[in-house]
Amino acid sequence: MSAPNSPNDPQKQPTAADQKAPEVFYSGTPTQTPWLQYARNQRLVTFALRTITYTIVFAVGAIIFDVVAKGLPAINADFLLAMPSHSGAAGGILPAIVGTINLVLIAIAMALPLGVLSAVYLKEYAPKNSLTSTIQLSILTLAGVPSILFGLFGLAFFVLQLGFGTSVLAGGLTLACMILPTIIVASVEALDAVPIAFREASQALGATKWQSIWTNVLPYAMPGILTGTILSIGRAAGETAPILLTAVAFFLPILPRGLFDQVMALPYHLYVLATQHPDTAAVGPMQYGTAFVLLLIVLGFNLVALALRHCFRKQYKW
């Protein structure tokens, strides 16, 4: 049986299919172009990719270095522990620190139990049905809502509809809505990492579902949940847009005394000093000092979370 399309046949003109034949080896490789010649150069491409990656590292370093180098000299006990004066151009930032702590505490107190319990439901109880996928869809949606829209929602719902007014409570609840998806996702991942055998062993010994979750699953998921929580504390402390419309005051040199008081907050204080303050010369060190304290708090939480994750990863192996 002769092969009519064989390239060895001298009678036959080469067809298009014959010319493409050698390229079959590289099914993903298109025709040779100068660009691709460069793209195949191993060292050149590696160098380019490495340069780009380290440019990002450099940018991160530049931001942190700029804030630390100019902010550190402004830090002293007076700056941290005194009330601000001259609408922020002098004095300290104590009310802003206290305000941020209050906002974060309220947010965590609301979001942590809700988030962890939701995660336990989704991972351990939820059947595969349309309700579960709706819950998952709404968590994804919530994670994608821009922070300023949480602020708008908090304004319309907590501040006006529920009548909380511009207050630390309204701001904290708004932040809670914002960090809820982060906590849920982190907790689901932590629960996922606990082997299924832990549940089976416990239930085989006669424990009910909740007993086995409480005694044999949650303790081992705790490090992961904790890491996610600490990360979201950092995020909540640094966010400005959600509290801009719901909680903060421009200049308020007293400490908050109740849930319905307005507060100052570090990120908003930095924003105001950087953009709204007329006396730019006097306010310069105050800006960098505030930025430094904010960065220290937020990155401090991030580093603690990273360290925890590192430790627990070593501790538990199964």
């Binding site: 530049a62 400005t240 960065l295």
Partner: peptide, 23 residues
């Protein structure tokens, strides 16, 4: 590299904005 990228995700947007304004 990866912790540095995560650190970048952690920097508050107001601090990044402040850096933009100043530098």
């Amino acid at each position: 590299l990866k912790p540095i990228i995560e650190l970048l995700a952690g920097i508050p947007s107001v601090v990044i904005g402040f850096f933009g304004l100043m530098v």
